[in-house]
Each structure stands twice: as structure tokens, then as C-alpha cells.
Amino acid sequence: MDPKPHFETLARYNSWANRRLYEVASQLSDAQFREDRGAFFRSVRGTLNHILVADRVWLERIEGAGPKPSSLDEILFDDFADLRAAREAEDERILRVLAATADERFESVLSYRSMAGTPHELPFAQVLTHVFNHQTHHRGQAHGLLSQFGLEAPSIDFVYFLLEPK
């Protein structure tokens, strides 16, 4: 399998799933958006911010530029509308980064430092796999939180993305 088209498909899926999730989340009141529901990042606000934080951390490592959050639980955007706009922009950034990535980079190793400053090296393609897997994991948590509020959380399985007419 050619890795570049594979990861570009995952990036398009990622954007599709985020749009669907945010559409339902937009139905929350501000109090519900912020309410501590006992999730790992406490609230829908905390969970959706964490996904954006992690994407920015990894994209800064991949590109060597861009916003660099200071902690994994940082609230980058307190307001839902601002967070949604930032999420859409970040999804576009992911697509642009992948489009600009040379084919040979998918076979390379990414050297980076953890947020604590520890040096690491991982295969670049595996880092990308982590980025998309991480989003899926935490989108699932946000999906569960939306269901707790009685909202009809959207179908965001990858197969539904693949089956949707393009």
C-alpha cells in the first residue's frame, strides 16, 4: 500500500468525522459544553481542546513550526465557536501537510522531543498512525459525552465515511 494516499484518506476521514461531531456538539448549551462529566479531560470542552492540542503538538514536531501548546490539558479555546473554527483550520492544515510531504518521508524516522524535553525517534508513518488513532480515541469519548446529554451522536465510523457518496 502506498502510504501517502492512505494517510490522505485518513485526513479526509478525520475532517469528516470532526465536522459531524462538532455539528452535534453545537447543540449543547454553554453550561453543558463546560460541565465536568467525569471524563478523562472532564468535559466536552476539555476533550475537544485536548484533541486540538495533541494535533498541534504533533504537527509542530512534523513541520518544525506552528503553535506549540504547553500542556496536554491546555484550553486553547474557551468558546465553542472559536474552538470549532480552530478545529476546521487544523484539519485543513493536516491535509496541507500531508499533500506537501514527499513520498520518501513516509519511510523516514521522526526525531523529536517530548513535552518534557526527552528525545525520541519513531518511524514517521507510525507517528501519523498515532495522530489519527489518537483523534479517533478521544472523538469516541466526546461522542459518549454527547450521548450523556441526550443528543443523537453521529455515526462517525470510518466505514460510513468510505460508503458516503463522494
Rank of each mutant, 00 (worst) to 15 (best):
G38V: 13
S15T: 04
H143C: 03
Q148L: 11
A85K: 13
N18M: 05
G140R: 04
G38P: 14
P165H: 10
S155K: 15
S15E: 11
E8I: 02
K4H: 01
R56S: 07
D30L: 08
L146E: 09
V24N: 07
A86G: 05
L95S: 14
A17L: 05
I75R: 15
G64Q: 11
A25V: 06
Y22V: 03
E104H: 06
H6V: 09
R84H: 14
D78C: 08
P119H: 06
T129E: 12
L163W: 05
R34M: 03
S29H: 07
L122K: 08
R20S: 09
Q126L: 13
A102E: 14
R93S: 10
L72D: 13
R139L: 03
F7E: 07
V53E: 09
F41E: 05
A102P: 07
L95G: 09
Q27S: 10
S108W: 04
V44E: 00
W58I: 01
D30N: 12
V97L: 06
R113S: 15
D91L: 10
A89M: 07
E121P: 00
H134T: 06
H120D: 07
A17V: 01
F80N: 01
G38Y: 09
R45M: 14
Q148Y: 01
E88N: 10
A85V: 08
E8K: 02
I156P: 15
A17I: 03
W16M: 01
S43T: 08
D157I: 13
W16H: 01
S114L: 15
A85P: 05
T136R: 00
V159T: 11
R56G: 12
N18F: 04
A153Q: 05
G144Q: 04
F41M: 09
P154T: 02
D79A: 08
E164H: 12
E90W: 01
P123A: 07
A99G: 09
V97C: 12
R84D: 13
F41K: 11
I75N: 06
A39E: 12
D79N: 14
S43H: 10
R96W: 03
I156T: 12
T129I: 00
L83R: 08
L151K: 02
S111A: 14
L151S: 04
A102Y: 00
N133D: 15
E152C: 08
H6D: 08
L122H: 12
K166C: 08
E8H: 00
H138N: 06
E104S: 13
G66H: 07
P67N: 08
S111Y: 02
S155C: 10
A116F: 13
L21M: 14
D73T: 15
I94H: 11
F41T: 11
R87N: 11
F77T: 00
R139K: 04
S114K: 04
P69S: 04
R12Q: 12
A100K: 03
Q135D: 13
Y13G: 06
R87L: 07
E35V: 04
R139S: 07
I75E: 07
I51N: 04
F158C: 03
P119W: 03
A153S: 09
V109E: 12
